[in-house]
């Protein structure tokens, strides 16, 4: 994941809290070892090396993670796609560019066959590979938060790279953890909720004298301008992480998106749109805004 994770816990027993935070961060490190595409000994590298030739048996946790990828891919109509890596490289987003047409042929989560009965994964497209960078951070935070909760801690905040955050309970005397969404005028009140914010990496690719957009659309295989920010609030950090990635490509909330997720997206004319069952958690923090005078 290559990013900084931090854990803040509140409670009465400092040695126990420290032990909880250490166990939580240890789980994050363990999952990084399992799902990093940069580590030759990771489970993901093993799958990428072998699933093109034969079905690869995987553990239940990895299967569930890949099944979640497939679900968000389907619901987002392909905007979230963990097989997009070859295309990213071909367009020059990661290292030396290649031919995007060749790369497009191996992209698509529909080319990743998950067989629940045998608990295996197989790639049907030659050259396919998985990159779980758009979802693994959220999954790691969900697992880290579960460790904290199981140890009886009811107040804490965990984040990975400041882009995905999990709030456990709320700070003493407060109703929620208040998190600022940088790049927007909004703050969000989180109580037992996860939130993810995605922004374009800032990298612009130049091809034949044209400056191309920041975000690659896996469905077309071409860069798009996309949204300048996408924020999702929900119960699971894994889900908010994946969906914030998808919304960066889509720029609008799709019909297939789970109803329980709440989204913040920039709009062309009206500025910002907040949609979903928990839109009351968002409030504008700029002083001119009437709704932003006090926190919830």
């Amino acid at each position: 994941m290559g990013t900084r994770f931090e854990v803040v816990l509140w409670g009465g027993d400092a040695p126990c809290l420290r032990a909880c935070a250490e166990a939580a961060l240890e789980r994050v490190a363990e999952l990084e070892r399992r799902y990093s595409r940069f580590r030759p000994d990771s489970v993901l590298s093993f799958v990428n090396a072998h699933a093109g030739r034969r079905p690869v048996g995987i553990d239940a946790d990895t299967f569930d993670l890949l099944a979640a990828c497939a679900r968000v891919w389907r619901e987002s109509e392909g905007a979230f796609d963990p097989t997009v890596g070859p295309l990213m490289r071909a367009w020059g987003f990661h290292g030396e560019p290649g031919d995007p047409r060749d790369a497009a042929a191996c992209v698509g989560m529909d080319g990743v066959l998950l067989d629940e009965a045998s608990r295996t994964v197989r790639f049907t497209r030659p050259g396919a590979s998985l990159d779980l960078g758009g979802i693994a951070k959220g999954q790691a935070l969900d697992e880290a938060a579960a460790i904290v909760r199981e140890a009886g801690v009811s107040c804490g905040l965990l984040h990975g790279g400041t882009s995905t955050v999990v709030a456990i309970g709320s700070p003493p005397g407060e109703s929620a953890w208040v998190v600022e969404v940088r790049g927007s005028p909004f703050r969000v009140a989180l109580h037992d909720r996860a939130m993810s914010v995605s922004e374009p990496s800032g990298r612009v690719v130049e091809r034949e004298g044209r400056r191309l957009g920041h975000v690659l659309d896996p469905r077309t295989g071409s860069p798009v301008e996309g949204a300048r920010l996408a924020c999702v609030v929900g119960a699971s950090a894994m889900e908010t992480d994946a969906w914030s990635t998808a919304l960066l490509v889509l720029a609008t909330r799709p019909k297939g998106m789970p109803e329980q997720l709440t989204t913040l997206l920039p709009q062309q004319e009206s500025g910002w749109s907040v949609e979903g069952p928990e839109s009351r958690l968002f409030w504008r923090s700029d002083p001119d805004d009437r709704a932003g005078q006090e926190s919830p």
Binding site: P15, C16, R18, A19, C20, E22, A23, I147, E150, A151, G152
Partner: peptide
């Protein structure tokens, strides 16, 4: 640098 403690359920 860690406490060598494990959180007990």
């Amino acid at each position: 640098k860690n406490s060598w403690r494990t959180p007990a359920p």
